[in-house]
Amino acid sequence: MSKNTKQQIAFAILTLAALIVVIPTILIIGFIFVKGSSAVTWEFLTSMPRQGMRAGGIYPAIVGTLYLVTGTIIFALPLGIGSAIYLTEYAKKGRLNRIIRLAIVNLAGVPSVVYGLFGLGLFVLFLGFGSSILAGALTLACLILPTVITASEEALKSVPKSYREASLALGATKWQTIRHVVLPHAMPGILTGAILGIGRAAGETAPILLTVAAFFLPRLPRTVFDQAMALPYHLYIISTQVPNMPDDIKYATALVLLGIVGIFFTIATSIRIKFKMSNKA
């Protein structure tokens, strides 16, 4: 068998694998759009739930989700990127470093309900934050930290060592080299990790169920110490706990959640493309 034939077979297998992943995803999104788009109206997006959540809108759940995702980004990204910089650029290579990296990788596979119990014990009970947006955002930040750290580390390692050496040879300090040379080139990869983390945080139910989510609130949260409704938990409730719930409302809620995640993805991807273009220039 010639090399070209082997290459064509490999490309065919990879293409098939990609299609197996992409096509069902497109079909699911299309199905949700068809079933729920008719119910997504301005009133649905901007009004409070009524009649046991069988009518009205999902405005409090949208606001609560935006608060939680924003808080998660504020807590997780600086800490995750800073940890990756330390492990990659400053930490000494050795057994302790390897143990820490192994622990971070293992934490990425911990079930989300375990993070929820951790957040309940630490943030809600021990630190006294109560069931609140702050406790929920901190719990979700812990959930996505391993993903952010791992992706950021790989992005920092992908920057050629010659870039660092050239900067140091010109008289720059180590921090100046990291800030002005390494980070700009690593930022597209770092943002990839951020995108994955944001997507997971926005769709999680178990952690917010134990730390922040409320079944129904007649008002919007006023401070970070208030409870909040959230779209993932709201979708779970109306799908399993509310009898005779119209199907179009369920699918419309899922569609709005996908839309919010898509907006955050679009913003992060735009920033990533901007950094890529500036690096090429």
Rank of each mutant, 00 (worst) to 15 (best):
G64H: 02
T65H: 00
Y67T: 00
Y67C: 04
L68E: 07
L68R: 03
V69I: 15
V69A: 10
V69Q: 09
V69G: 10
T70E: 06
T70V: 15
G71Q: 07
I73W: 02
I74G: 10
F75Y: 12
A76Y: 06
L77Y: 09
L77H: 00
P78N: 11
L79M: 13
I81K: 09
I81F: 13
G82H: 02
G82S: 15
S83R: 00
I85D: 10
I85R: 07
I85C: 08
I85S: 08
Y90E: 14
A91D: 03
K92I: 12
K92G: 13
K92H: 15
K93L: 09
K93P: 02
G94R: 02
G94L: 05
R95E: 02
L96R: 11
L96T: 12
L96H: 04
N97W: 06
R98P: 00
R98V: 04
I99N: 03
I100V: 15
I100Y: 11
L102F: 14
A103M: 15
A103E: 05
A103P: 04
I104R: 02
I104A: 01
I104C: 01
I104G: 01
V105M: 09
N106M: 12
L107P: 01
L107E: 05
L107R: 00
A108Q: 11
A108W: 04
G109E: 06
G109Y: 08
V110S: 07
V110C: 07
P111M: 08
V113T: 05
V113H: 02
V114L: 11
Y115P: 05
F118A: 05
F118H: 02
F118W: 08
F118D: 02
F118G: 00
G119R: 10
G119T: 11
G119L: 12
G119Q: 11
L120K: 04
G121E: 12
G121S: 15
G121Q: 12
L122K: 06
F123D: 02
F123P: 03
F123L: 08
V124I: 04
L125K: 13
F126N: 12
F126V: 08
F126H: 14
G128H: 09
G128K: 07
G128M: 05
G128C: 07
